[in-house]
């Protein structure tokens, strides 16, 4: 019961900051509002006892992505500038599309029986624990994901090399 109330409080805070992020006139405010939304997501992950994902969410999104976004904004735009206002037609179209998508999702979730759910399905509390995630990533057996884990390292290697080539000044 307390967890339920906590969920609604966090979800409400997330919605408010998400709407703020989209509607804020100042692009820097949008970036800051994103932090609130990401932090709320991290709390939701914690409530689902997925502490690794929660920590990753804070480290990667708040610590990395948003700071990166803010850097880019400060480096490229003049904050005094007036925000570009989308034409009314586009706003209406975007609103209609988003409503249609929301409607589809609600309908689908309703038909699948997830919208009004009286039974609570819970995984074992250590299902997404750091220990289990680590063990499954390094397990070459039927329960593990060793191959994708190793391929991610290839991906990171070649991405770093490519980024250095692109960022490097010519003539050095």
């Amino acid at each position: 019961m307390i967890a339920d109330i906590g969920f609604y409080i966090v979800a409400f805070a997330m919605l408010v900051s998400a709407i703020w992020a989209v509607t804020a006139k100042n692009i820097l405010h949008s970036a800051l509002a994103l932090i609130g939304s990401f932090f709320g997501t991290a709390i939701l992950y914690l409530m689902l006892s997925a502490e690794f994902i929660a920590v990753a969410q804070v480290l990667v999104y708040i610590g990395g992505v948003v700071i990166f976004v803010i850097f880019i904004i400060l480096l490229t735009s003049r904050l005094g500038d007036k925000a570009e206002i989308a034409p009314a037609m586009r706003k209406i179209l975007a609103f209609a599309l988003c409503s249609a998508m929301l409607g589809t999702f609600l309908h689908a979730l309703d038909r699948a029986g997830y919208l009004v759910n009286t039974k609570t399905a819970t995984a074992a509390s250590d299902f997404a624990s750091m220990r289990n995630i680590g063990l499954r990533f390094l397990d070459p057996g039927a329960n593990g994901f060793l191959v994708p884990f190793e391929i991610i390292s290839l991906l990171l290697l070649i991405t770093v090399i490519g980024a250095i080539v692109i960022a490097r000044k010519e003539g050095e």
Partner: peptide
């Protein structure tokens, strides 16, 4: 998914 990413991300900088 990881394979698809490895087949896509390097193309961005290529």
């Amino acid at each position: 998914f990881v394979g698809l990413e490895l087949a896509t991300i390097p193309l961005y900088f290529l």
